[in-house]
């Protein structure tokens, strides 16, 4: 039995057939839609590499059945930047070297975006560390991650109406 679901993925509303109800949101994104920025580190909700926003909330996409998310809005790492203009969290991760191998990074960044939206941590580093603890980083980039989240949050709070602060990035996109 195939279900058709409607998902708004990174701002684009689309009807997506789900021929196999076993398909998780993570596998749909990666294998079905080829949005491979979202990573599979454990597939069991234990590492956070698959974090995306669903209806504005960060969740583990590996533990969500795609078919049950009919009608949802999904934001993945691919939808965060506006063209060449990076999101403040992305900029801050580069500036603070908040990653090494980069594999957990899309999940970390989406988690950070979710954290800032939740507005529970404030500028308390301890609360940020706790709230980012669902994202493992085996390289050990936690110090830079915490700094990046705090800086991006400050930048976004100071300029809530402007889209993003000016990007320091030069040169062409990948």
């Amino acid at each position: 039995m195939s279900f058709d679901i409607v998902l708004t993925v990174n701002g684009t509303r689309r009807t997506i057939p789900i021929p196999d109800p076993r398909t998780t949101l993570l596998d749909l994104l990666r294998e079905g839609l080829h949005l491979t920025g979202t990573k599979k580190g454990c597939d069991r909700g234990q590492c956070g590499a698959c974090t995306v926003l669903v209806d504005g909330r960060r969740i583990n996409s590996c533990l969500a059945l795609a078919v049950s998310l009919d009608g949802a809005e999904v934001l993945t790492i691919e939808g965060l930047a506006e063209g060449d203009r990076l999101h403040p969290v992305q900029e801050a991760f580069i500036a603070h070297d908040g990653f090494q191998c980069g594999f957990c990074t899309p999940g970390q960044i989406m988690s950070a975006v979710g954290l800032i939206r939740e507005a529970q941590a404030g500028n308390d580093p301890e609360r940020v560390r706790e709230a980012m603890s669902g994202n493992l980083c085996r390289c050990g980039a936690y110090a830079g991650i915490t700094e990046a989240v705090l800086e991006a949050q400050a930048a976004m709070t100071q300029a809530p109406t402007s889209q993003h602060p000016a990007s320091p990035r030069q040169g062409e996109a990948a």
């Binding site: 909700g45 956070g48 960060r58 969740i59 533990l63 988690s111 954290l115 603890s133 669902g134 994202n135």
Partner: peptide
Amino acid sequence: GASAQLRNA
């Protein structure tokens, strides 16, 4: 309990 992501779901 768990993580922010899991608590959200």
